[in-house]
């Protein structure tokens, strides 16, 4: 299979993730959609790495995985904290600061 198909898949995944972030209300689901976007970028990096025949993209993918893990740690902590004080993880409910 030619590497281009992987790129189409990664663009599709990225778009699904971006739409999810904009549409979904639950903070956890929004966060999962962001993770999907990061993974789409990983897929693109690895596919390009294969196309160009060098390893830079694959190394980058490893770094991205570590960063994504760190982001999960911070993000889930913040979202769980919000949930515990409001009993809701809905992004729309967090609107105390609207003018």
């Amino acid at each position: 299979m030619s590497p281009e198909n992987y790129l189409y898949l990664s663009a599709l995944l990225f778009t699904i993730g971006a739409c999810g972030v904009l549409i979904r209300r639950n903070a956890i689901v929004v966060f999962m959609c962001i993770e999907l976007m990061l993974n789409a970028a990983n897929l693109a990096l690895v596919a390009f790495s294969r196309m160009h025949g060098n390893l830079d993209g694959q190394i980058a993918a490893f770094f991205v995985m570590v960063v994504a893990a760190a982001e999960v740690v911070v993000g889930l902590a913040i979202i769980v904290m919000l949930y515990r004080s409001r009993h809701s993880a809905s992004v729309d409910d967090a609107s105390l600061m609207k003018l």
Partner: peptide, 8 residues
């Protein structure tokens, strides 16, 4: 994703 595209 922009970085991935520039790398590509």
């Amino acid at each position: 994703f922009g970085i991935a595209l520039l790398y590509g």
